[in-house]
Amino acid sequence: MNASNFALPAVVLIILLAGWMRRVPLFDTFLEGAKEGLSAGIAVLPPLVALMVGVGVLRASGALDMLSFALTPVAALLGIPREVLPLTLMRPITGSGALAVFTDIIRIHGPDSPVGRVASVIQGSTETTFYTIAVYYGATRVRRTRQNLPACLTADLVGFVMSAAAVRLLLS
């Protein structure tokens, strides 16, 4: 047994215990949240259709292979498998786009293959950088974001390299 098998049940248990101790009506509150989750989930469908068609066409035409092939030297230098490069290009730009590329990768290579594992760790350990910066600064009167974007993109790049390294280190 390893600790990661306990993480999910433990989080569920802590939440339910805390709710029970504070006398939160567990079932009613759960349903209220679940309904919000349902509408948020349905709202994801239209962008997902658009981006999965885009990714599908790009892969079927061979353009994705060409792009990955062109970037192979960079990937090799950073220790990132060539097959996950489309994910690293998509991840900072769009959440649903990354989701589309990610499902594509684990369907083709298998979730437990080295490529599938690196893609999973990247998907789990990074966020949509451009969107966040746009939304957060959009709410303010700030004109210049100074070092923010370069700093975040540096963090993303390190996250990609580290994801591949962590899979080599911890999962093989």
């Binding site: 569920v12 939440i15 709710g19 509150t29 209220e32 679940a34 919000e36």
Partner: peptide, 8 residues
Amino acid sequence: WSGLMKVA
């Protein structure tokens, strides 16, 4: 998860 987080 939205349900559980509402409880949280």
